[in-house]
Design a binder for these strands. Structure first.
Lengths: 150, 150
DNA sequence: CCTAATCTCTTCCTCAGAGAAGAGAAATCT
DNA sequence: AGATTTCTCTTCTCTGAGGAAGAGATTAGG
């Protein structure tokens, strides 16, 4: 096992495959791109108000309401009242048997099997990388959004 | 360094961050979801005819033509004649200074720095994983599309 | 208190993107 | 050579997502 001649190409291929799979999964269960985007935001940022979700998706309030309507009707999300401020609503992911999770399950199994093929030390490296890389992407995404906000 | 208590959570967070970043990058340069989808297909599958691209994106011929028009006008792609069959056109990625690559560059730099922080042996593990995982995702995506084709 | 600010949701309008059907060009088959 | 098939592209239509503006409800401030 050695580092490849063109590490960038390997990584780009990997990234394309990840995104392609996500899109294909969303498409397979009839989820739009923005819907998937919002689900990722909620998965990463936790429950939040529609206003916050709208800000992060870059949508105005009207489309945000309908986005939440769609997700709620499809069973991915639910609206809970904010106990402190009765104007507000809290949108939270619902764990249920969402179609998307099911669609992505085969890939998760494959990835799990690949990871299991490594030694414990090697697995530790992978998970360390996952954690660090996630932070880096979150940061880079925030910078992209900041630039857009100007 | 050790494997985390909930590896699945770490990995899900990582996946969400990756997809979120891709979406945000596309949005930042005014690229639609299908356009990004198509670029990933082309990046992964290499140059192909409009018909093949349409099949893989799940679009009919009309929208496919206009999809290619958009990508071509934006400078991500170009149409080349097929030397063997003059009815056909070959759509290929264009390396140029596309806006998307530029938008995603900061993240690539961050990831590069993270990878550089590992020992050569550890880096080899990571790239081995990237290569295997990419194959797994490609396979899983193909299965998703097959299921849709029924 | 009463006004102003905040938050969500509704309504109307616009437009990008997808489907359907068919035209035109070129290859393949008999 | 003529007919059929295979491609791509064009046109028309329509669904669906997003923006703008405002209503209704609730909280915060003078």
């Amino acid at each position: 096992m050695s580092t490849p001649d063109d590490p960038g190409a390997v990584y780009r291929r990997y990234l394309s495959a990840v995104m392609l799979h996500g899109h294909a999964g969303a498409k397979a269960v009839g989820l739009g791109a923005t819907d998937l985007y919002a689900l990722n935001i909620l998965g990463l940022g936790g429950a939040m108000t529609p206003g916050e979700l709208g800000r992060r998706t870059g949508l105005t309030t009207g489309p945000t309401t309908r986005l939440i309507d769609r997700l709620e009707q499809a069973g991915y999300v639910r609206r809970a009242p904010d106990p402190d401020d009765r104007r507000k609503v809290i949108v939270e992911l619902v764990a249920g048997p969402g179609g998307l999770d099911e669609a992505l399950a085969p890939a998760r199994r494959k990835i799990g099997a690949i990871v299991q093929g490594y030694s414990p030390e090697q697995q530790a490296v992978l998970f360390d990388y996952f954690a660090r890389a996630a932070d880096a992407y979150v940061e880079a995404t925030a910078e992209l959004n900041d630039k857009r906000a100007d």
